[in-house]
Every structure is written in C-alpha cells, then in structure tokens.
Simulated assay, not measured.
Amino acid sequence: MKALLRWIGYSAIISLSFQIPLYAQDVPIVRYAQLRVDSGGVHSRVMAANTIKKPDVVADNTLNAADFDEDSYLQRIADLDVYGKKHDARPVVDLLKSNQLKAVTADKKRSHKFYYHMANIFARLRMYSLAMKCYFKTLPVGEDVNTHLIDSAAWDTTYITERKPAFTLAALQRDTSVTGLLTINHVDEQILADSNNYQYTSREVKSPTTQLANIIDPFDDGKKASAYALLIHISQPVSGKRKIFVKLSKVGHTFITLIKYNTDSTSVSRSFGFYPKKDHFLSATPLFPTTGSVFKNDEQHDWDETVGKFISERRFKRILRVIKQYDMKNYNLNKNNCTDFGLSLASTAGISILYTNGSWPLGRGNNPASAGQSVLEGKVLNMDNKYGLFICNDIVK
C-alpha cells in the first residue's frame, strides 16, 4: 500500500510539472538576425502598450543625390526606425554613405532627430556601442542638464587630459578625449561595412554558456577609458503583455550589456545573462526553485524593451563586483532569477524599474513580463539624474 501511495504521489508531481513552466528563465530559445559584428544598446521612447503599431518598412531606401534634400533624407532614416525584430543593416549602410549625412547633422534640430532614430536602429541591430554613441548626441546641453549629469555621463578626472575635469555635458562635448564617443569613427565604419553580410534567419538558437572571465577580463584591456555604459534588456514571454509564462517553458529573459569606450576610439562590449544550471529535470521549476547558476552569452538574444545610460567609472567597477558575487550564487526561481540579476545591476547603475513582481503556480517574484511592461508604461526612474535614460522598444504587436 505504501509503495502504491508513493507511486501515486510521484505521478501527481510529474503531472503538475507539465502544467506549469518547467524551465523558468532557462536556456531561452530566441530568434535573431545573424550579425557579424560585436554586440553592443537602446533609445528614449516610452509608449503605452496599447498604442504600439508596427510601421510599414519603405522598400526603396536608396536616394538620388540630384533630387533629394535634408528633410527627405531624414524621413528615409525615420522609415527605418520600426518595430518587428526583422531588421536589416544594409539600407542603413546605404543611407550613411550618402553625401546628405553632413547636411542633416549640421542642422541642430535635424541632427537631434537623426541621432534619435539612429540610436533606435543600431540598438535593434544589436550594435549597442553605436546606439549609445548616437544617444549621447541627443542629450540637451544646458546648465540645468549639466547639474544632473555629473555622475551618469561624467568621466573620472584621471582620464581627462591636461587636468581638465569633464564634470558637465558641455565640457564632455568639447573635450578632445571623447571625440571617439561623439562621432562615428573608422572602427564603426568597418562594423557597418561588415553588416553587408547581414542575413536574417528564423532558426532557433540558444545562448551559449560563458565564463565569468569572458565577461570581466576583456574590460581590463590596458587602455584608457573615455566612457562607460550599461543597458538592461528584457524579452517578455508575450511581447507587450504582463503574461508571466506561456505553455511549458516560455517565460522570457532579462540580460545586461556593458560597454567601455576607449580614448583610441575602440570599445569593449559584452552582453550576458544569469541562468540556472540544471541539476535534474525539475531544477529551476516551481517544484524545485533552487539550483546552480551559470552565465550565458546573450549578444544575439532577442528583446522587447531596453533601458540604458552612461555611468561613471566608480559605478562601472561596482557593477563588476556585483557580477563576481553572482558567480558564487545559486539560481532561485522566486528570489534570485535572471530578472533579479538584471535589476540588481541596473539599480547599481542608477536605473529603477517599478512593479516588476508577479506570481505563478507555487511561487512569485520578479519576472521579464512585469519588468518589460513597466518599461512600456514609463514606470522607469533615473535614480541619480534628471536626464540620461535611453529607452527603446522592439515589440511585436
């Protein structure tokens, strides 16, 4: 009789496990466009989820130099700033080769719009370092703004030449040590040139496992830094909804991108997430929420919402310490999952996303569905500055 009861009990547990997410925030299957570039970000636009519409993509993205003006060029760029995941770098490259680029960026108003759209476009192409460069160019210059940018966009004084501290945005834009950050340089042009090899594929790809050293060590490249940036990316189970899970295992994912810009115009970018290391079949499920942990390379991972900002060297080093601490922590579905990891690093950078908690069978905690929807609803705070958050969406209706 005891054996029969034990068999019935085990059968009930197995049956229950098939009614709830089995691999919560584990090895997410993602669809992405293959890019032969270094990963790298996102832009300042918060929209209500029910107002999002996917614009039509303009088929002909080439321009005849003899019959276009600055406004038509800018409109072509705007037409490429669309939702939908299937983004193509080739028409962007064609437009950037146009001789109209200088004319557009010479005008202050048009320049702001141009860099706004380009930040969104590069973010969706997973060229995060380029996205944040363009975002920087959209930041307003003024005494009131400079007051609030002391810790987010300021560089450590030890990296400023001729003992000139760059504690204001205006000073940063004038200082020659950040020229590489403010312009699309020859290194970026090579990345864009390589983008001609871009091919979209619908095949499913898993993020590969990576070691802590592969995340941390590349930033110690012996080069002087001119700037640092962090971005948090959120992939919802259902794009644009607070639906915490779908079917058995589609639960979304949250991950981070860190960027270091060097004074020689090079940059280092790493995108990574915190995952469960499954000890057995039911590890990291509501039945057995705690298991080992592992980092994975998410440089090609899909996302629905992204929030980023420039940070000081002090915050950057603090973030690296937090990452090292997570390397020694277990994964727990309810209180130490991928979203907890992402929110912890974002908080260290001064980004706070509100209302990220939700419940599921036998548990509750922070999750991608709630966090992503809060970003869409504008429930994001810059904790130490009035300005400086880059927010971009790439949701599917």
Rank of each mutant, 00 (worst) to 15 (best):
K317R: 03
T285V: 02
D38Q: 07
L376K: 04
N197V: 00
L320C: 08
K260H: 01
K137N: 06
L96T: 00
W360G: 02
N185G: 02
I150G: 10
H117A: 03
W360T: 02
T291F: 04
A171N: 12
V42G: 10
L22T: 14
T348P: 06
L125A: 00
T266I: 05
N120G: 15
S265M: 09
I216A: 01
T183V: 14
L258K: 01
I232V: 12
T254Y: 09
H112V: 08
G378I: 09
A59T: 15
C134R: 05
V178F: 09
G350H: 10
A349C: 10
I323C: 06
A346C: 09
V251T: 08
F295G: 01
I160P: 06
S177M: 04
P21N: 13
A171Q: 13
F255P: 06
V380G: 12
T168A: 09
N366V: 11
I234P: 05
A166N: 07
T183L: 11
G240P: 02
N214Q: 12
S44G: 13
L258W: 00
N336Y: 11
D26C: 11
L381C: 10
V141T: 11
N357Q: 14
K309F: 00
K113C: 06
L230T: 00
Q211A: 10
Y355T: 08
S72H: 09
Q211D: 06
S195Q: 05
L74I: 04
N214D: 13
T291A: 03
L333Y: 12
A89K: 00
G41K: 01
A213F: 05
A131R: 00
R110E: 07
G222Q: 01
R163Y: 15
H87C: 00
H233E: 05
A103T: 07
A24R: 15
A78R: 07
T157P: 15
F274D: 04
V46T: 14
I20E: 12
E313G: 03
A66L: 14
T161W: 08
S44C: 12
G350T: 13
